[in-house]
Write a protein that binds this DNA or RNA. Structure first.
Lengths: 226, 226
DNA sequence: TTCATAGTTCGACCGTAGTCGAAGCATTTG
DNA sequence: CAAATGCTTCGACTACGGTCGAACTATGAA
């Protein structure tokens, strides 16, 4: 009776309407909180919590704790592939709905997150690092590549000083507004500090907004938009 | 709450262990009877019947009645694709088990089925027709193409005589031993009759075996094996 | 510190769906 | 025709799992 891979187990996980709704909501690629997902599915938070625990245990979801929020995203591409295949079979075209965070335009664009750069520009920088091969996504956590190290040094950062400390150099941080990962860790903090040093930007007091100068914006784009 | 394509519905269908076992058994591409599938799933025939009805209504299975048997196969490639994706996610490599029909070697090779050719050679001819574009699989049933018609005429069959009758010219028939479709209908019967006319083969009395002569076999291979 | 918000755990309720025995059709075989 | 085989339908039982209220923990804000 036992047919090797237990397709019934995961199909049953997807087979509950509430869970299916959560999973399809996550197909956008963005991470959502438990509360948002509960609304997405039309169920209470308690019920959602139980569902999310099951999906996590089943290997379909990747939960990440961020402060007092818990963000969920699809565990990997294969999960998305299965969902897409199911959508195809279920005929009709796939809908996606999402509903994301901060209202303030400036906050969305660039803000401080534990002293590193977050928001659209944070994502922009992170993507640029990945594109240029400055960062390597290993089994557990990010590492700075050789080319990445030399770039960072050229940018004016005391890399040796950072690595001397015990706090992690590179970490992924889930962006609030963009709902994607960006660069955190001591390197992330140092990069933002250096941008402030170079007078590219400054923090607006009494808020988390990071406001770039016109020149600073140009420099940033030239440096990180390739 | 309603997310367009109802992936939960079909995922739930696959999500039951008994149904999942039946579906994986059908991944071989061969059609299986309700009884065989019930054994495959380790449940009684009554329960299996209910499951199979649901899978049919859900569009995952294609049932075909053949005498007092009912054969089930996956409805289409997309279903197989979903199952394969699920197997991938469920990790581990997929097992397949099957258990097919007739014992007698000669019967498996070539036999009569409602006066048309069945068994391995029947499949061979059917595949050859499809490969050469003699048959066209439309929305409902097979049709003979122009090139197919001229081939058939060259083979010595009175095609006009056949089309004059009201019984269907081409029909699919599910092969007992191969568990795949082959050509039935009046054309199928005429083709077998012509092979007997040409002394390629003759029927063995008191059985359904069709025995080809050595020369007939050679001719058949030359004609239908491309 | 206290309060508010996000999420988890516990317990109880309820419904749905899987299961099988028994009886009923349908088709083939003798 | 009767008997046998393959499958379906009906009905009853059972259990698993989804659901929510209430209480609890953890993190952040005032």
């Amino acid at each position: 009776m036992k047919d090797g891979p237990d397709i019934a187990r995961i199909a049953a996980l997807i087979g509950d309407p509430a869970r299916a709704n959560m999973l399809t909501a996550l197909m956008s690629g963005k991470a959502l909180t438990a509360t948002e997902l509960s609304q997405e599915a039309g169920i209470t938070l308690q019920t959602a919590s139980s569902h999310l625990a099951k999906l996590g245990a089943g290997g379909l979801l990747m939960p990440r704790k961020q402060g007092r929020h818990k963000y969920f995203s699809l565990a990997n591409d294969e999960v998305a592939h299965v969902l897409e295949a199911l959508m195809g079979l279920a005929a009709g075209s796939g809908h996606l709905r999402t509903r994301t965070g901060p209202r303030d335009e400036e906050l969305r664009k660039a803000r401080v997150c534990y002293n590193h750069l977050a928001g659209h520009m944070g994502i922009q920088m992170y993507d640029s690092f990945l594109r240029q091969g400055f960062l390597d996504i290993g089994t557990e956590g990010l590492t700075l590549t050789k080319t990445g190290a030399s770039f960072v040094r050229d940018f004016g950062i005391d890399l040796d000083g950072l690595t001397a400390k015990k706090s992690p150099l590179c970490r992924e941080c889930l962006d609030w507004s963009e709902r994607r990962s960006h660069l955190a860790g001591s390197l992330g903090r140092a990069l933002l500090a250096q941008m402030e040093n170079l007078s590219w930007a400054k923090r607006i007091p009494e808020s988390r907004i990071v406001r770039f100068t016109k020149a600073g914006q140009t420099e940033f784009d030239a440096t990180f938009q390739r």
